Amino acid sequence: MSECMEVTATTLLEPKMPRSWRRASKPHKFCPGCGHGDVLKALGTAIDDLGIQDRVVFGCDIGCSLLAWDFFECDTVQAHHGRTTPVITGIKRARPDRICIAYMGDGGGYAIGAQHLVNAATRNERITVILANNTNYAMTGGQMAPTTLPGQKTETCPYGRDIEAMGNPTLGPEMVAAITKENAYVARGTMANMRQLTTMLKKALQNQIDGRGFSFVEALASCPTNWRMNAKSTWDFVEKEMPNYFKVGELKVPAPKEG
């Protein structure tokens, strides 16, 4: 009886990984409590559910997102900082049968890579862009990023972001929704609601599978290392503070495909 109970307990404690994850690279290389792991788990689950692992090309940026270079058992490319979107665009144009995913942080998407995001969106490139928003430049020490919240302290705004002097945080999905065609899919999810985030990522990938248009999902993510927060404060910031400015939800959903 005790042996049976021991086996059951061991089974329950075994972490459940997406089938599309590369097990040899786990545990992952992100800091403890980093939101990237959760966002990538949601993406892995979406890939599994859609059965597209053998067709995926995954591209990652410089920054913390580069640590995802060996995350999946699929074709992967790592681009220079801010250049993941055009690299993935080129692959999609060369191989339209592939499901092409560009993964990046807020710096790679909204700062150095902003021009690529805007132009890919306006051209309606049939790719899926996923951006993890953790409100700072995490890999280089926690400097102010395009998404740093008003009043939030970082290494380069130690007294808090002053919007009069430094401008407002970038609202990426709102911008993308405004410049894309009606067959684009645009949403903002959060690691605080993994089921919802996974559903959004599935819709974004399905929009590409259907050959309809550009797909963009921002995911609110944690960075306890640079936020200098404990577990409770980190979770409260992601779940309660960030959505006050970055509204979670779908911003653009194409009409159902005919036939």
Rank of each mutant, 00 (worst) to 15 (best):
W21G: 06
M1T: 13
K252T: 06
K203V: 01
L131V: 15
V39D: 02
T154Y: 04
K181E: 12
F72S: 00
F58G: 00
K247D: 05
E155R: 15
E182W: 01
A231K: 14
V77I: 13
G211I: 10
T122W: 12
V176F: 03
E218W: 07
S20Q: 08
S215I: 10
M194P: 05
Q206C: 01
S2I: 12
E164K: 14
M242A: 06
N230M: 08
T135C: 02
A219H: 07
V77G: 09
K232F: 10
K181A: 11
A68K: 02
K181Y: 06
R123K: 15
R19G: 03
V176A: 05
G59R: 02
F30V: 08
E241K: 15
S233Y: 06
A132C: 12
S215D: 03
Y185H: 09
L13D: 13
A120P: 08
K92D: 00
R93I: 12
T84S: 10
I101Y: 01
N244T: 14
T84H: 03
I52Y: 08
A178M: 10
G44A: 04
Q78F: 09
E218T: 07
Q208V: 15
I179Q: 01
M104N: 07
K153E: 07
I47M: 02
P150G: 05
G172E: 06
Y103M: 02
H116D: 12
H80N: 12
L12A: 14
G105Y: 00
G172C: 06
E155W: 05
S215A: 14
P173D: 05
L171Y: 09
E3I: 10
C157E: 07
Q115F: 07
C34K: 07
V253Y: 03
G37E: 03
H28Q: 10
A46L: 06
T122C: 12
V56F: 07
A138G: 13
A187S: 02
G37M: 04
Q196H: 11
R83L: 08
E125K: 10
D70F: 11
E250K: 13
G59T: 03
A120C: 11
E6N: 12
C223M: 08
I47L: 03
Y110L: 10
W227F: 07
D75P: 00
G90F: 03
G167A: 07
M200F: 15
G44Y: 08
G259F: 09
P158H: 04
T10C: 13
T190S: 12
P256N: 03
K29T: 11
V77T: 12
Q115H: 14
I47T: 04
E73Y: 03
W21C: 11
G37F: 05
C34D: 04
I130Y: 07
A187F: 00
D97F: 10
Y137E: 03
F71G: 00
D38P: 00
G142Y: 03
I112A: 00
A187H: 00
V253I: 15
V129C: 01
R123I: 02
E14A: 14
W69K: 15
K252C: 08
T170W: 02
M144A: 08
I88W: 04
V129R: 00
V129Y: 04
G259T: 11
I88D: 01
P169Y: 01
R123H: 13
P96C: 05
S25T: 13
A178R: 14
C100V: 09
A145S: 15
P254H: 09
K41C: 09
K202E: 08
A138M: 07
A178K: 13
R23K: 15
A177N: 02
D48E: 06
N119W: 10
